[in-house]
């Protein structure tokens, strides 16, 4: 497996080398295409700022106000009913909102109960197989200039609930 990790280090530089060869060997001036593309990318990114402001403001309010703890106590009965270990609650509640927040929580979790425990491994499953919901959806929809997202949010949360169940089941049966 260590070999796999080594390989991934090479992916990015290799892509760059391929592009370098393309620029060298092509008869057309591909650098101009690069400039055009980069300019479009810049506009897209700057246009994302208003969305990012709203999201970051909302998420940080949720963290600093103690809203996360309130959410934890609201969802505790449901999640323990599903067989979720008590220690995993904070990472589950944070998952839809914040990527770095979950990493911080996992860091504390591993320190307290050890990285090889069954709960820590279940946390890995959940974190490895899911990503933040609010941020991801907002970024893609606002970049595509979409106002009405229809079933995107409900679908994401249904899938997230399913992810919790699957990680806990696989964690309990296989690890």
């Amino acid at each position: 497996m260590n070999f796999l990790e080594k390989c991934t280090v090479f992916i990015m530089p290799l892509i760059l080398v391929c592009v370098a060869f393309m620029l060298l060997l092509s008869k057309r001036e591909l650098v101009i295409s690069f400039m055009d593309g980069a300019r479009e990318g810049m506009a897209t990114c700057i246009n994302l700022l208003p969305t990012l402001l709203l999201i970051m403001c909302g998420v940080s309010a949720l963290f600093s106000s103690g809203g996360v703890d309130v959410l934890c106590s609201i969802f505790r009965p449901v999640l323990t009913f599903l067989g979720v270990p008590e220690e995993l609650l904070p990472s589950i509640i944070l998952r839809p909102f914040s990527g770095s927040g979950v990493t911080a929580v996992a860091d504390r979790l591993f320190k307290e109960i050890g990285a090889d425990s069954y709960v820590a491994k279940t946390a890995c499953l959940l974190m490895g197989a899911t990503d933040t919901i609010i941020y991801t959806l907002s970024v893609y929809f606002s970049a595509a200039n979409i106002k009405k997202t229809r079933y995107a949010l409900p679908a994401s949360f249904v899938v997230f609930l399913f992810s919790i169940i699957v990680s806990v089941l696989i964690g309990r049966k296989l690890l």
């Binding site: 990790e5 990493t103 090889d116 490895g128 990503d131 994401s156 899938v159």
Partner: peptide
């Protein structure tokens, strides 16, 4: 596409491995 992006497939989940 957006929903599938909330459930990524990571070949090497490097953050988790580093943490562990």
């Amino acid at each position: 596409f957006a929903v599938l992006n909330t459930v990524p497939f990571q070949l090497v989940p490097s953050t988790l491995i580093a943490l562990r």
